[in-house]
């Protein structure tokens, strides 16, 4: 998908420039952006390493594991079809915690494992089960508590207070997650009778 998206962006840009006469600006735009990408990554290295360093401590002291234990009662409410002791729950918990802490690379493997385990409980193998729909929407409603990347980018571009968006971001994330859960629960209630 990114393949066509990327090529499309470049072609549309150059085509538009041909009509608007911005061709010279386009050349500069391409070169400047490439340079800027490198500068951005340099700031990212600092902030991201700080975060992963901190998370490593949390991983070693089993703080992250303890947090996923705490999550269990809530997950029971979200996934009534999945037995609490089932492996799927463990992977879901790991995925959710990793997402909340902004550990994308840890979240995806756990999420894929969760899907695999949920599939073993799914009676119709080509059709998403109720638990899968809930997991996916919950996951995609954005769970991240602190957007470390955004803070890094803000400081790179000279923000006076890069972290001032954490609180508002937290609020917006809560709203989107609550909306996602509510929608799925409503749909589930509506077709409880005809589903499996």
């Amino acid at each position: 998908m990114l393949n066509y998206l990327w090529a499309g962006m470049i072609f549309i840009g150059i085509l538009t420039a041909a009509f608007t006469g911005n061709m010279e600006l386009v050349t500069n735009g391409a070169l400047d952006s490439a340079k800027e990408a490198v500068n951005t990554v340099i700031v990212m290295v600092g902030v991201l390493s700080m975060w992963t360093g901190l998370m490593k401590i949390g991983e070693k002291s089993r703080l992250i594991e303890a947090l996923s234990e705490r999550l269990m009662p809530f997950l029971g409410f979200l996934f009534p079809d999945v037995p609490k002791k089932h492996k799927a729950m463990k992977h879901i918990a790991a995925n959710v915690i990793a997402n909340m802490l902004g550990l994308g690379w840890a979240a995806t493997p756990a999420g894929l494992m969760a899907m695999k385990e949920l599939q073993t409980l799914n009676p119709h193998k080509e059709k998403a089960s109720r638990a899968m729909c809930m997991f996916m929407v919950f996951n995609m409603s954005s769970l991240q508590l602190v957007s470390v990347n955004i803070i890094a980018y803000r400081s790179q571009y000279g923000s006076a207070n890069p972290s001032e968006v954490i609180g508002p971001g937290l609020f917006a994330t809560l709203v989107s997650t609550a909306a996602g859960i509510a929608v799925i629960k409503l749909i589930e209630m509506r077709d409880r009778k005809c589903s499996f």
Partner: peptide, 15 residues
């Protein structure tokens, strides 16, 4: 990031 920022740079400066 280099690849995508370049593409976005082209798209934006073209108007």
């Amino acid at each position: 990031l280099i690849g995508l920022m370049m593409a976005v740079g082209i798209l934006r400066s073209s108007g």
